[in-house]
Amino acid sequence: MTAVQTTAATRDALGPTLVRLQQSGAVDLVVVDADLGKSTTSRKFKDVYPERFFTFGVAEQNMISAAGGFASLGYTVFASSFAVFVEHAFDQLRMSIAQPRLNVKVVASHGGVSTGEDGASAQSIEDIALFSSLPTFKVGVPADVVEAEAMIEAAAKDSGPWYIRTGRPKIPVLYTDGPRYQIGKADTLREGGDLTIVACGLLVERALRAADVLAAEGVSARVLNMATIRPLDVDALEAAARETGAIVVAEEHLVHTGLGAMVAQALATRHPVPMEFVGIPDRYGESGTWDQVLEIMGLTSQGVADAARKVMARKRR
């Protein structure tokens, strides 16, 4: 990795990407908002296409059902808010979008505990579980702003419902040479033969740093960026399990209901191997700077490396 890293928040991808997509003529967009368009950056779309931008006030349930209505006419609809506030409209997501399989893309910012100072109420630690529980929804968590942009574009051009979680903190840009995102495909960021670290979101960069530490200890870790959580790249997981024999999953989500749980379920039927999980323990967050709260939760490169050592010990047994 390069010595000097540029950083950016994944949420910053939304507004500019939507403008670019509408300008390209490839999609017929409508953007709906519930009074957080500045934070999610969707309001940048309003500056260019005010007639295609609809405010619903602080009323997420109405916004989500109305998004379904727009989509039933053939529009590609982007709805955004903070992740915790789209959770406010779960039944509306289910009835007005998921079940009729309408073309609505929910791009929610401030996912995870890295929302920081606002504390527990603003920290979405359950969004992946909720959206993954909806048949027909695709679910993605980009690892950096470049991937976020690519994922938003892929979702816009794909048919059916999507959930994309973006984040508030400025995190290192990994894909400096351009995006490699493909729907439903894991991206191998580092080859390795002793174990595989499967990560999403800001844990991908932390996993790469953990792999550096492990390499110094003589352990070769493969790192998979699992940016699409639904549909899960089960083939890449099976290959990793067969070829490396141990798996660590790292995510900024409740550990018992997120990516790790889904990876474990997939591998249980394909090729079970020792696994360890790095995620938010069974608790709510608290205030602090974003990296402090991540540290409280154990979501650090150190935490990932510890899990890797643990799984290696079990593998050797």
């Binding site: 349930q61 059902s65 209505g69 727009f70 289910r94 007005s96 009729p100």
Partner: peptide
């Protein structure tokens, strides 16, 4: 929605139809 053609929305959870219709009309 769509079962059969002529059914324009999915419902059963009360309270959502006016929002869905509003989205259609705005569109």
């Amino acid at each position: 929605l769509g079962k059969p053609a002529g059914v324009e929305n999915s419902a059963g959870s009360l309270g959502m139809g006016l929002s869905f219709g509003l989205g259609i009309r705005l569109g």
